[in-house]
Simulated scan of single mutants.
Amino acid sequence: MSRFPDLSTAVWRKSSYSDGGDNNCVEVADNYPGLVPVRDSKTPTGPALVITAPAWAAFVGFAAGH
């Protein structure tokens, strides 16, 4: 069994903090329990990072200054 989820059917959404541009965003995919797939919108067919949900929450909290 693979340790990485199949992202071929992932539905990606852009960060609410993006500057509104089409190619300057971080995108995440939902519906992967315990995991947060993350990619760069400039390279949608490129690699994605798959981060554990607790690590993502800690990153977002740090980035938000909390």
Rank of each mutant, 00 (worst) to 15 (best):
M1T: 12
S2A: 09
R3V: 04
F4T: 15
F4R: 10
F4G: 07
L7Y: 12
S8T: 15
S8P: 07
T9Q: 12
T9M: 10
A10N: 08
A10Y: 07
A10P: 07
V11Q: 13
V11T: 15
W12T: 02
W12A: 03
R13I: 05
R13W: 02
R13H: 06
K14T: 12
K14E: 07
K14D: 09
K14I: 04
S15Q: 07
S15L: 09
S16F: 02
S16A: 13
Y17M: 09
Y17S: 13
Y17T: 06
Y17E: 13
Y17C: 03
S18E: 02
S18K: 01
S18Y: 01
D19P: 03
D19F: 10
D19S: 15
D19M: 04
G20S: 02
G21W: 04
D22N: 14
D22W: 06
N23H: 13
E27V: 02
E27N: 05
E27S: 03
V28Q: 04
V28W: 02
V28I: 15
V28T: 15
V28H: 01
V28Y: 01
V28L: 09
A29C: 13
D30Y: 04
D30H: 12
N31I: 05
P33K: 01
P33W: 04
P33G: 03
G34W: 00
L35V: 04
L35T: 01
L35E: 01
P37C: 13
V38K: 08
R39E: 03
R39G: 01
R39Q: 03
R39S: 02
D40S: 02
D40A: 02
D40E: 08
S41Y: 05
S41N: 10
K42M: 09
K42R: 15
T43G: 07
T43I: 10
P44L: 05
P44D: 10
P44Y: 07
P44H: 07
T45S: 14
T45P: 00
T45Q: 15
T45H: 14
G46R: 03
G46W: 00
P47K: 13
P47N: 12
A48R: 03
A48Q: 10
A48W: 00
A48Y: 00
L49G: 09
V50K: 07
V50H: 06
I51M: 09
A53C: 02
A53R: 13
P54W: 00
A55F: 00
A55R: 08
A55H: 07
F59N: 02
V60A: 14
V60P: 01
G61L: 05
G61S: 12
F62T: 09
A63K: 15
A64W: 00
A64Y: 01
A64C: 10
A64Q: 15
H66L: 14
H66K: 13
